[in-house]
Write a protein that binds this DNA or RNA. Structure first.
Length: 107
DNA sequence: TGCTTGACATGGG
DNA sequence: CCCCATGCCAAGC
């Protein structure tokens, strides 16, 4: 496994309750700013094994991008359980809920 | 080894 | 705001 992959896993595990991160952010934080698609794959194949909070990962627009309707509904419910409120059907406010680890370094 | 596959991102029309 | 093309790169086959 590549170090990048491991980083992605750790980062996703570090997302706190009630917060979300975008694929691009995670990829960048893991060391490759253009590897959003690898994050996708990792979520696909490792979310079970590593118990990743996959539902806290959304796209750059702050929308749910699960292909199936059931998956989308499930993710939405999981996020709502954590206190996140949706503006529209599958749209949430990134301004409010986006988790940026940079807070730790710069604050 | 080489080609295909994505739950993405970004920019242009 | 929606749709499309293109870039990207590790994992699977």
């Amino acid at each position: 496994m590549q170090p990048f992959t491991l980083n992605v896993i750790k980062i996703i595990q570090s997302i706190p309750r009630g917060k979300v991160m975008t694929y691009g952010q995670i990829a960048k934080a893991a060391g490759s700013n253009r590897a959003a698609r690898q994050v996708v794959r990792i979520l696909h194949s490792m979310s079970e094994k590593y118990q990743l909070p996959w539902h806290r990962v959304v796209n750059a627009s702050g929308k749910l991008t699960i292909p199936t309707e059931e998956g989308k509904v499930l993710q939405k419910q999981l996020l709502q359980n954590e206190g996140i409120v949706f503006e529209k059907d599958d749209q949430l406010s990134l301004k409010r809920y986006m988790y940026d680890p940079i807070e730790f370094w710069e604050e």
